[in-house]
Amino acid sequence: MLNFQIAGAAGGNLLEHLLVESIGAERGGGIFAWANTNGVKSLFDDDVFDDFLVNGDFRLFVGTDAITDPPTVDKLIDVSTQRPRLDVHAFMSPTTSLFHPKMAWFEHENYLSLIVGSGNLTMGGLRSNWEAFVSLKLSGEDRIRALTQIETFLTSVTEHLLPITDPRVMGKAQHNTGNERNLRTAGTQPTVAESVEAVLVAEIPKAGNRWAQANFDLENYERFFGARVGSHRRISLHHVDATGAVGDVESRPSVEVASQNYRFELAAARGLAYPHGGAPIGVFLRLATGEFLYSLILPGDAGYNEVDKLLTDEWHGPAGRKRRVRVTVDQIHSAWPASPLWDGLVPAL
């Protein structure tokens, strides 16, 4: 099946396909031209892929000609240490020609899942760039032929493959940057207005003792976050703390429960007691890349009163309901000009 990954669109991205095809697989592998830390985290820190690695073997081969930087190498070493069934090698190109393949495969009992396309093991390649890829299920002779071709290729380049722990890999990575946006031509950095597609300001309900599993109404679950009732979608969030520091990527599955609650987990709320004197307020920015930045503010925090007033002014729903409103960038900036989101937005671009 041919798939197009549309920048900024929810669902249908390479990450989702890799996760789905890993379910129930016995073993697999991937070959990517390069990787960055957010891409590695998005795939290997996901519960679905981690479950696969508990019982399944996965061989990963990553190029070092560009992008793959020291933090990425460190992350790959860490993941492979935690999950011994993950075997990671780096490709050290012997010429000035780029190592540029992008593919993955998963061996199931009766078929082979083969995914070949343009996306690398980066956040952009997995979900937010414009990409295209083909997802195939092969059986019989087609399965055998594909696996044979993969092994033939890997055997032919064995002398250029080094364990990810080899010091020469880190030495090569020190010349790279993990930011794919450096590949853009000068002058193409988007403005705030261009990079933020929509803003949601939402009170987070208590929901028992698990308010980190933040509940949202159906309208925003589907039309703001891009989930779909009856299907499994994933979103990528970054928390921005009070200093403007952008947290690690949070790859979250959409969750539906029988009580018609629609949830995404927020790492920033983990371990926090639900506050007295007012509901926590989340401010979410949906970026043109399809990712989300968010800040979580509690009663007494800087900006809470200002954002609470914005909710009061813009909420037109029933009394007693948790207030959730979509506003413009100008509205939230005017209400909360000192928000750390504006500092976090720049590195996130």
Score class of each variant (00 low, 15 high):
residue 151 E to A: 09
residue 152 T to N: 15
residue 153 F to T: 13
residue 153 F to A: 12
residue 154 L to S: 06
residue 156 S to D: 07
residue 156 S to E: 06
residue 157 V to I: 15
residue 158 T to I: 04
residue 160 H to D: 03
residue 160 H to C: 08
residue 160 H to R: 11
residue 161 L to E: 08
residue 163 P to L: 06
residue 167 P to E: 00
residue 168 R to G: 00
residue 169 V to L: 05
residue 170 M to Y: 14
residue 171 G to H: 10
residue 172 K to I: 03
residue 173 A to F: 03
residue 179 N to G: 02
residue 181 R to W: 15
residue 181 R to G: 11
residue 182 N to K: 13
residue 182 N to P: 00
residue 184 R to N: 13
residue 185 T to L: 12
residue 185 T to A: 10
residue 186 A to M: 10
residue 187 G to E: 02
residue 189 Q to D: 09
residue 189 Q to K: 15
residue 190 P to I: 00
residue 190 P to V: 00
residue 191 T to D: 07
residue 193 A to Y: 02
residue 194 E to P: 14
residue 195 S to H: 13
residue 197 E to Y: 00
residue 198 A to F: 09
residue 199 V to E: 02
residue 201 V to I: 15
residue 202 A to G: 09
residue 202 A to Y: 01
residue 205 P to G: 13
residue 208 G to A: 11
residue 210 R to W: 05
residue 210 R to G: 09
residue 210 R to I: 13
residue 211 W to T: 06
residue 211 W to L: 08
residue 215 N to P: 06
residue 219 E to W: 12
residue 219 E to D: 07
residue 220 N to G: 03
residue 220 N to C: 02
residue 222 E to V: 05
residue 223 R to V: 01
residue 223 R to C: 03
residue 225 F to Y: 07
residue 228 R to M: 08
residue 229 V to G: 08
residue 229 V to I: 13
residue 230 G to L: 09
residue 234 R to N: 12
residue 234 R to Y: 13
residue 235 I to S: 03
residue 238 H to Q: 14
residue 238 H to T: 00
residue 244 G to N: 07
residue 244 G to L: 07
residue 244 G to H: 07
residue 246 V to T: 14
residue 247 G to D: 06
residue 248 D to E: 14
residue 248 D to M: 05
residue 249 V to G: 05
residue 251 S to C: 09
residue 254 S to G: 15
residue 255 V to Y: 13
residue 258 A to H: 11
residue 258 A to I: 11
residue 260 Q to A: 11
residue 260 Q to E: 05
residue 261 N to T: 12
residue 261 N to D: 06
residue 262 Y to T: 05
residue 263 R to L: 14
residue 263 R to W: 03
residue 264 F to T: 01
residue 265 E to I: 07
residue 268 A to L: 08
residue 268 A to F: 02
residue 268 A to S: 15
residue 269 A to S: 13
residue 270 R to L: 10
residue 270 R to S: 09
residue 270 R to P: 10
residue 273 A to W: 00
residue 273 A to G: 09
residue 274 Y to E: 13
residue 281 I to L: 03
residue 281 I to R: 01
residue 283 V to K: 00
residue 284 F to L: 02
residue 285 L to T: 01
residue 286 R to Q: 08
residue 287 L to N: 03
residue 287 L to A: 06
residue 291 E to Q: 10
residue 292 F to Q: 04
residue 293 L to T: 09
residue 294 Y to T: 09
